Simulated assay, not measured.
Amino acid sequence: MTRIRQLLFACVCLLASIAPATAQPERRKLIIDDEGFALMHVMLLEAPDVDVLGLTTVSGNVWVNRATAEALRGLEILGRSDVPVAAGATYPLINSEKQTERWEALYGKLTWKGAWMQHWVEPTAQSTPPYHGPNDPLDLANGNPVTKPSPEIAANFLIRMVHRYPGQVTILASGPLTNLALAQRLDPGFAGLAKELVYMGGSLNPQQVLDTVSAAQFAREFVNTPRREFNIRFDPEAASIVSRSAWRKITIVPVDPSTATQRTQQLLDRMKAVASPALARFLARLEPGFPLWDEIAAGVWLDPSRVTARETLFVDYNTQFGPGYGDLLSWRAGYQPGLGEQSAEVVRKIDPARLEALMVRLVTTRAR
Rank of each mutant, 00 (worst) to 15 (best):
R5H: 09
L8I: 13
A10T: 12
P25H: 01
D34E: 07
L44W: 01
V50G: 04
V50R: 04
L53Q: 06
T56G: 13
A69H: 13
A71K: 15
A71Q: 15
R73W: 03
L75K: 02
G79N: 06
W103S: 11
E104S: 07
L106E: 14
K113I: 07
G114C: 13
W116C: 12
P129M: 05
P137M: 05
N142L: 07
P145K: 07
P151W: 03
E152W: 00
F157Y: 13
R160F: 03
T170W: 09
Q184G: 02
D187E: 04
F190D: 02
Q207R: 08
T212V: 04
A215F: 01
Q217H: 14
F222W: 15
R227W: 10
I232Q: 12
T251A: 07
P254L: 04
T259Q: 03
T259H: 13
D269E: 13
K272A: 14
A273P: 07
G289K: 00
A298C: 02
G299A: 08
T308G: 11
D316Q: 04
T319N: 13
Q320T: 11
G326P: 05
G326Y: 02
D327F: 08
D327G: 01
S330N: 14
W331V: 13
R332H: 12
G340R: 06
A357F: 00
R366P: 03
R368N: 13
